[in-house]
């Protein structure tokens, strides 16, 4: 296959991607002027946020326990001073693990849901039926998910970090006899950590519905195609989270000096 023919084949996908980025970005800033059903952002916030709450809390709690247990185990062997474990754990949760782990969870649950829903709409001609009624599917379907995901990723990360700290404090207290008051010490968290964490939440929250929406809207070939697009959405969303994590952490390190 020549580069020209490759480009020719990729042209519709590139056009969809351009359309998706432009209209979603514009829609988020001009929410009232964007064409989607009334109350759809709230419904999507419920779908993305409330319905992921238990999943995120349980997952981050277990990860918090594992991280604290392993860290305490290693620190105990080297220095035996566990007083700083909690403070460093909270710092790294705020700027790194909290947003990234929460987003990885959302990439699987929310990303798969968006891709499967939109993919099945494509293969059953529902997207064409929207177009017949002069509805732009990106405005109508993606923009509410885009806005809801950006808001709820931040909210879920905040709750998830709280759960991880709580679970970590319990682990440290019961396994290594660290006083929870000593463990829950946010003094190491600087403004740069909060800013980095905030930007990560916003970037992940934007990337997951865009990547999944792209995979869903480019689905082809019946239910097998929907399955393929869903798999692609989960892989691509997770990969995007990791790449964004690397990029934002790098930028933050050199600009905010927030990294340890």
């Amino acid at each position: 296959m020549t580069p020209i023919s490759l480009l020719h084949r990729a042209a519709p996908s590139l056009e969809l991607l351009r359309h998706l980025l432009w209209r979603s970005g514009r829609g988020a800033f001009r929410l009232r002027a964007t064409d989607f059903p009334r109350g759809e952002v709230w419904r999507q916030m419920h779908q993305i946020g409330n319905r992921s709450l238990l999943f995120v809390c349980v997952t981050l709690s277990f990860l918090g326990m594992v991280l604290v247990f392993q860290t305490c185990l290693q620190v105990n062997r080297i220095t035996g001073d566990l007083s700083q474990v909690g403070a460093e754990f909270i710092k790294i949760l705020v700027h790194e693990f909290g947003p990234s782990l929460c987003a990885m969870m959302l990439a699987t649950r929310v990303g798969a849901g968006i891709a499967a829903e939109l993919g099945s709409m494509v293969v059953t001609d529902q997207i064409d039926a929207l177009a017949m009624n002069n509805v732009d599917p990106i405005d109508y379907l993606i923009v509410p998910r885009f806005v809801a995901s950006m808001v709820m990723t931040g909210a879920l990360t905040t709750v998830g970090v709280g759960c991880a700290v709580f679970a970590g404090a319990l682990t440290a207290a019961y396994s290594f006899h660290v006083n929870p008051v000593v463990f829950v010490d946010p003094s190491h968290v600087r403004i740069g950590d909060l800013v980095t964490g905030f930007f990560k939440c916003a970037a992940y929250g934007a990337a997951i519905p865009l990547v999944s929406g792209f995979c869903g809207l480019s689905a082809q070939g019946g239910s097998a195609g929907v399955g393929r697009s869903t798999t692609r959405a989960v892989i691509a969303s997770s990969f995007m989270v990791i790449v964004l994590d690397f990029v934002i952490s790098g930028v933050a390190y050199f600009t905010l000096q927030s990294a340890p």
Binding site: M121, T124, D125, Q126, D128, A129, L130, M132, N133
Partner: peptide
């Protein structure tokens, strides 16, 4: 195109009802 589509009704092969 949007103006033209206002005058066209279409029944899709697999109905395309909004779930």
């Amino acid at each position: 195109l949007q103006q033209s589509r206002k005058h066209i009704g279409m029944l899709f092969q697999n109905n395309a009802l909004f779930d």
